[in-house]
Nucleic acid binder design. Structure first.
Lengths: 139, 139
DNA sequence: AGGGGTAAGTTCAATTTCTGGACTGACCCC
DNA sequence: GGGGTCAGTCCAGAAATTGAACTTACCCCT
């Protein structure tokens, strides 16, 4: 997979822009850390692909492999900070899917239990930026 | 491409979870509406793939094809509301790419010019929901 | 009227990637 | 010693992708 580095969107898609990687991230976020666990929860993923993607995600610093047994060799997969940050991408995909399809999963705020949406926010001004006011610009 | 409908994330990825679709959305968002335009701006996309993806995105109600000339046949591609909503996904990919790589594009609020980030927001309580407080739950 | 250029695709063979299933090795428990 | 689990690997067939060439239908210029 060759890299298209100029654009942060393209370069991100070069890493996780396939049918499976973000589902693996989703399930590690949901607390599934073992290979067999992920093979079951990531809908229909072949174990060869799971093995391959975990290696790529580890190489990219998105997941960390932590052996929890030497003999036999067993690993648990967790998200690094970089990997955890992909939660927003997963959240955005989920929001869109919830809005435009019928499903049985949603993202909620644990504190109030209500569904949440994703909005743009300007840290400097400390206010929301409406969707139609944001632009993609060269810096 | 078979469909994994249970989960909104999986079903969204079934539609736009490939190397090109979201780049096409990105560029239509940036104001590129014609086939030849997209072929140039979507980094290195083969025209056969562009043609194919535009058909899929049209079938999914994400882009609308509007002929602007009959003879010779010429079309412009625009985003539907559903397609425009994918801007948040593109924004999330961009934020992540900006944070974890070096690039020359960023998302800014047109009003103040500052870079913006994506945050979860509970409409009901009208307050932000911190990342670590949101969960993916069955509804 | 002929030549060159552009826009929007289509076609195709070669390559790459994905898929599903079988298989392996190293254990553990009974 | 038999059966089960876990974490993968291996492989052949199927499917998707790639790059390049080609097509159709104009327009402009001279």
């Amino acid at each position: 997979m060759s890299r298209r580095v100029r654009c942060p969107i393209a370069s991100t898609l070069d890493i996780v822009g396939d049918r499976w990687s973000l589902l693996i991230v989703r399930d590690i976020l949901r607390g599934h850390h073992r290979f067999s666990d992920l093979r079951e929860t990531v809908e229909g993923i072949p174990s060869s692909i799971l093995s391959d993607r975990l290696k790529v995600l580890e190489r990219e610093g998105i997941v960390a492999r932590r052996p929890y047994s030497d003999r036999p060799p067993r690993s648990a997969y967790t998200l690094t900070g970089k990997g955890h940050a992909l939660g927003v991408v997963v959240g955005a995909l989920s929001s869109w899917g919830e809005r435009y399809g019928e499903h049985d999963l949603s993202i909620v705020d644990n504190a109030c239990g209500h569904g949440v949406s994703l909005v743009y926010h300007c840290e400097t001004c400390n206010r929301a930026a409406p969707r139609n006011r944001v632009r993609l610009v060269e810096s």
